[in-house]
Structure formats: C-alpha cells, structure tokens
C-alpha cells in the first residue's frame, strides 16, 4: 500500500498542480477539449437526428450508429488517427499535441449517443399527442417546436449527458497515444513505474468525471418540463415512453471508452 502514500504525496505537493504540465493546466486542456468536441457533435448531430425523428425516417441508421460506435474501440480509432499522415500528432492551438486527432475522435464518439437518443426522443412522443397537435391545425414546424421537442427534451438531454461522460473518458484515453489531457499523468506514471503518480492522476480524472456527471444530471432535471411545472402527470404519458425497455437499455448502455 505504499502506492497510496505515494499517491497522496503527489496530490498534496502544490508544485504538481501548477505549471504548464501541472494538474490544473492539463485539466483545463481536457475540459476545453471535452466541451469543444461536445459542441461540435451537438452542431453536427442534433439537427439531423431531431429532423429525422420528426419525419420518422432513417431510424435504422439512427439506432444502429450507437451499436457501431460501441464496437469500435476508442483507443484503436485514436491510434489510427495519430499514426495516419493526417491529422497526426501535430500540435493544434490550445488543444495540445495531437489535438486535432483527439478532437476528431472525441466528436465521433459523442455523436452516437446524441443521435440515437434525439431520434428516439422524437419517435417516443405519444401518437395521440401528435395527432391532437395536428388536429389543432399545427403545421409540421409548430408540432416540432411546441409539442415534440418539449416532450422529448429529457431524453435528448440524457443523450447529451451520456455523450459528455463518453467524451471525458475518451479524452482521457488520448494520453495512451501521447495526446493531450489529464490522462498523461496516468500514462506517465505507469510507463515510468511511478505508480503513485499514475493513481493520483486516476483519482483526479475520476473525481472530475463524477462532478461532470452530477452537473449534467442537474441540468437534465432542470430541462424536464414535467418537473419544472410541478405537474404530477406529464402530458401524453411520456414518463411511460421514457421507461420503455428499448429506450432505457439504449440510453444506459453506451460504452465508456
């Protein structure tokens, strides 16, 4: 258990937190990577998935993209991107060494949970609610903005939450291919047999992951229209729609990377 003492020694030394290779700088780098990638995935994936869900087309692709994403190891994809002539290991602005390769991998791995959940969210709006909206004379656009999106929002948010956790995990793995981020403390520690340092890095990464997950859970709760208005029975019984087996297995089951 001397490793644990080493770990504590590493964490309690302020010199390890500051400086260009310190924990704080690496954490900032990884957070920047995470949120940039999440934003890019949202811009690319959300409109497409919501639109397809609204039309009810392309379901096969939208559901199966998650299965494909799960089968491709994040480590392998990162490795391929880094060894390829482009994007390679070139430093990319504030994103550090192999920044572009990491950003591409992170965005690709954030897309499946976002696309699948957003699509399912649109499809799971109860048909009678949809029909009622059409009966009231709503146009397709109005249906989408006033009915489907508000009702589907909790599931869309849970997809974003999954994507966030996934991206943070993948950003950590970037260090295995000498990329940026906090994972570097872990790989440095392990590859140089300084296990205390490696474990210290792991503690920090795990702690930030849990904080991000909790923050995302709070955001998700805030976005739930049923809870916000304090209504006990949400319109169209969408609570039931959320707990159907298919969607729940899907939404709880992204690979962490």
């Amino acid at each position: 258990m001397t490793v644990l003492t080493d770990m504590w020694a590493y964490l309690s030394d302020p010199a390890n937190w500051t400086g260009s290779d310190g924990i704080l700088a690496l954490m900032a780098e990884q957070l920047l990577l995470t949120f940039t990638a999440l934003l890019m995935a949202m811009v690319l994936g959300l409109p497409l998935a919501l639109w397809l869900g609204h039309l009810g087309r392309g379901g096969f692709l939208a559901i199966n993209i998650s299965n494909i994403g799960r089968a491709v190891p994040t480590f392998a994809l990162l490795a391929l991107l880094v060894v390829a002539p482009w994007p390679g290991t070139d430093s990319f602005g504030p994103y550090g060494r192999a920044g572009l390769a990491t950003l591409i991998a992170l965005t690709l791995f954030a897309l499946p949970p976002i696309i699948t959940n957003s699509y399912v969210a649109m499809r799971e709006v109860a048909p009678d609610v949809r029909e009622a909206a059409r009966g009231m004379g709503m146009t397709g656009r109005q249906q989408f903005w006033r009915v489907e999106l508000p009702l589907g929002l909790p599931l869309v948010m849970s997809g974003l939450r999954l994507a966030l956790v996934q991206v943070w995990a993948t950003a950590t793995i970037a260090a295995l291919v000498a990329g940026p981020g906090l994972g570097r403390i872990i790989t440095d520690g392990f590859f140089r047999s300084n296990y205390g340092k490696g474990i210290a890095g792991a503690v920090v990464v795990a702690a930030v992951a849990l904080v991000l997950e909790m923050a995302a859970a709070l955001a998700q709760r805030a976005a739930d229209p049923a809870r916000r208005t304090g209504a006990s029975t949400p319109a169209g019984g969408h609570d039931d729609a959320l707990s159907v087996t298919g969607a729940t297995v899907e939404s709880s089951a992204e690979s962490v990377g």
Partner: peptide, 18 residues
Amino acid sequence: TTGIYTVPSLALFPLLVP
C-alpha cells in the same frame, strides 16, 4: 453502479492497481 460507469476506463484500472 452508474457512478462506477462514469469513471473513465483509463482511470478505473489504475484505481484497482493498489
């Protein structure tokens, strides 16, 4: 179990090493 799931694999393995 969800909490464990949130921890990235590259961090979970080192945490088990001790």
